[in-house]
Design a protein around this nucleic acid. Structure first.
Lengths: 230, 230
DNA sequence: TCACTGTCAAGAGCAGTGCTCTCGGTTTTG
DNA sequence: CAAAACCGAGAGCACTGCTCTTGACAGTGA
């Protein structure tokens, strides 16, 4: 019973992966709402009930796809920063651009994780760790910038108090060197980044900032300055 | 054949409204994906095919609900500012809070308009006018603040150039008195506002800024300062 | 008044969905 | 080698959006 040695276990792992691959392709062409277990089984040459041996329900398949999407996005973001950079601003901008690029390349997967939650679907705890890769990456950049003396804390950033001061403690644990006012601003910028990308992808920018390249570039720079990078 | 006087036309208008009401209730409880024409007709005591006399397809019903949702949100936002206010910052904060309140009170309707686009569904041109009520409202506040000398253009806001400078012209038409750097920042804040609300509603803030009240308050204030209101 | 026209709800039906259950065969395990 | 676990096939249930036809009714113009 060591790591997947029996023929059955190998076949099972392969089929599981194959199901997800086909599902991902269906997702890319038709969107999450049209994802059909029967269509997948048809494409696999199996009978529809067989799929349920691998994913007990449609929601379980979606959960697997969601986790994969978070991981793919996180990986793309992390890959955008070279380990020995010396300009934190450039690394910051690279991460933002990588997130946007991934989102535009995989709009349906992006919608799956940052769009409306699937109806009747409760995101399991399993998704929160892969979901936090991007914000953790951003916090890491700031922490290192601060350590290198390249973070200039903006003078007009208010010190959080009350509930907010407590909540920010979670972030202090992730980026101990970054002062609380900047941590709060990082969350603000994080919500702005994904809000902007969602607006671009979901068509909310049509009529004003579409195409969004120039707007995105200007925004990420201003937001970098907002947290103290320049 | 004047304005809806015949019994037929009145009955038709009533039934159309009744269908939307039931649909909205289904939306509120089950979400957009589970909205079922058959369930609506069942509740109405009609046979399912009869619904199609009023809405040719499910997407047409959704479109009607989307437009209504945009209008409801726009109305809530506009109602939040009293016509003779003299503190633009307060009006600004009131609009932001009203948008959030409406979103939290009507999460599924919010998801319908600001979440992932419905698969295979193309938002018709009819939706862009009601969709722009909130941003137009925000621009109007800034325009009046500028006219009243209560807008302090931030010194570090860059002048847009190139494509961005062209795109911002659309906004200049809506708020002629507001300088271009602030107009760009308004769009940034607009995306931030809805990004933050989406994150709150869609569960992305769980584990950090949840509940989001304190964070929301601090953010909207900082964003107001970001565009020059204080 | 009568016949025509447009509108309406009803009902049957098609193709598709998620999901469950049972059955027979294979693989793995003790 | 036998027991247990696993697997795919197939039938079936309840549901969906949507189409088509049929018969009843309302409004209108001759």
């Amino acid at each position: 019973m060591n790591a997947g040695r029996t023929a059955r276990e190998r076949a099972r792992a392969e089929l599981t992966e194959e199901i997800k691959t086909i599902a991902r392709r269906q997702l890319a062409t038709d969107g999450a709402a049209d994802l059909s277990l029967r269509a997948i089984s048809r494409e696999l040459g199996m009978v529809s009930s067989a799929i349920y041996r691998y994913f007990p329900s449609r929601d379980d398949l979606l959960t697997a796809l969601i986790i994969d999407a978070y991981d793919a996005l996180g990986e793309a973001a992390e890959a955008a920063v070279e380990p020995d950079y010396d300009r934190p601003l450039d690394a910051w901008l690279a991460v933002c651009a990588a997130v946007r690029d991934w989102a535009r390349a995989n709009p349906h997967e992006y919608a799956l994780i940052y769009g409306s939650p699937i109806s009747g679907y409760q995101a399991p705890q399993t998704t929160v760790q892969p979901a936090s890769r991007v914000p953790i990456l951003l916090l890491g950049l700031l922490d290192r910038a601060q350590a290198d003396g390249q973070l200039v804390v903006p003078g007009d950033a208010p010190e959080p108090d009350g509930v907010l001061a407590e909540q920010v403690q979670v972030l202090v644990a992730l980026a101990p060197g970054v002062p609380p006012p900047v941590l709060v601003r990082t969350v603000i910028v994080w919500t702005q980044l994904f809000g902007m990308i969602s607006f671009e992808l979901f068509g909310q920018l049509v009529g004003s900032m579409d195409p969004a390249d120039a707007f995105f570039d200007s925004t990420t720079r201003q937001m970098a300055a907002f947290v103290g990078l320049s």
